[in-house]
Design a protein around this nucleic acid. Structure first.
Lengths: 142, 142
DNA sequence: TCGGATACCTACAATCGCTGTAGCTTCAAG
DNA sequence: CTTGAAGCTACAGCGATTGTAGGTATCCGA
């Protein structure tokens, strides 16, 4: 029987985050001690580890919910899980492509800046004048 | 004298976003028409274009605030602006590295999945068992 | 067995960078 | 002068946490 703190430590999760997962129904309501504290077993540990791993792979909580449903019904076809992972892979590849474009432009900015005064600073200038920009940044969002 | 809608169109920004930037002090409070509607000039247009471009390069609003302060004082040294850009470049490079690791792992997951039932599904399995994981995912955050 | 440190509890607010809504007023074209 | 688009304020919501305040439980050493 694990306390929430132990579970947190084992899975590299914050305590608050575990309670949040419970609140949104991603983790089940666990047993409680006499005093009302949460007590977890191995199942919950595994489930949380699954969630965290998927999060680290960049899956949204919605996708994780789907994957958990799938994992709970092992008789179904693999296709659904696979398509979620493929969607995720495509998203990761898109993000990489976008970031590589940003990297190019930032490198150029930094490289061209030769440490005079701000009046001639390439960094400021490039930001000021979009037309100098090679990158197609349509809709980036961090 | 530009309306907020025109400004939005010219810079590819939503009207709400412009008002939000004003609210957090990133854009100045503009003049108003007799009826109380915002009227902008060229300065504000340039400033907003600068902000949007920096956002597209992934700069946080805090960093943009710094860059704008710097841009307003062209006599100072360029070093501060350069170091902000370099920090940004490093962050982008880190993100790329992390995403590339994810891509590798996702590719492996997807590739190994050969369309049986979920009981043998690599996608689920890899997520379940972190020890199969090649990636160092310290703190990813999408 | 007691005391105190630590961990836990609930409930709620804040983060970041917007975006959407409701209910009203102003503007510009016909 | 009318009408419809665009503007106004104020506020709520997103996703995925994280932090706070104020109180309770648990555990370990003395």
């Amino acid at each position: 029987m694990l306390s929430i703190g132990t579970l947190a430590r084992e899975t590299g999760t914050k305590v608050q985050t575990i309670r949040y997962y419970e609140q949104i129904g991603l983790m089940p309501e666990p047993d409680r001690s006499e005093g009302g504290q949460r007590r977890y077993g191995r199942d919950e540990l595994d489930r949380l580890a699954f969630i965290r791993h998927a999060r680290q792979l960049g899956f949204h909580l919605d996708a994780i919910r789907e994957l958990l449903n799938l994992a709970d019904h092992p008789d179904q076809s693999c296709a659904a899980a696979d398509s979620i992972a493929q969607r995720q892979l495509r998203q990761v590849e898109q993000r990489i492509a976008r970031l590589e474009a940003l990297r190019t432009e930032l490198k150029r900015m930094v490289h061209d800046c030769e440490g005079g005064t701000l009046a001639d600073c390439r960094v400021i200038e490039v930001l000021r004048d979009h037309s100098e920009c090679l990158t197609d940044h349509t809709h980036i969002g961090a």
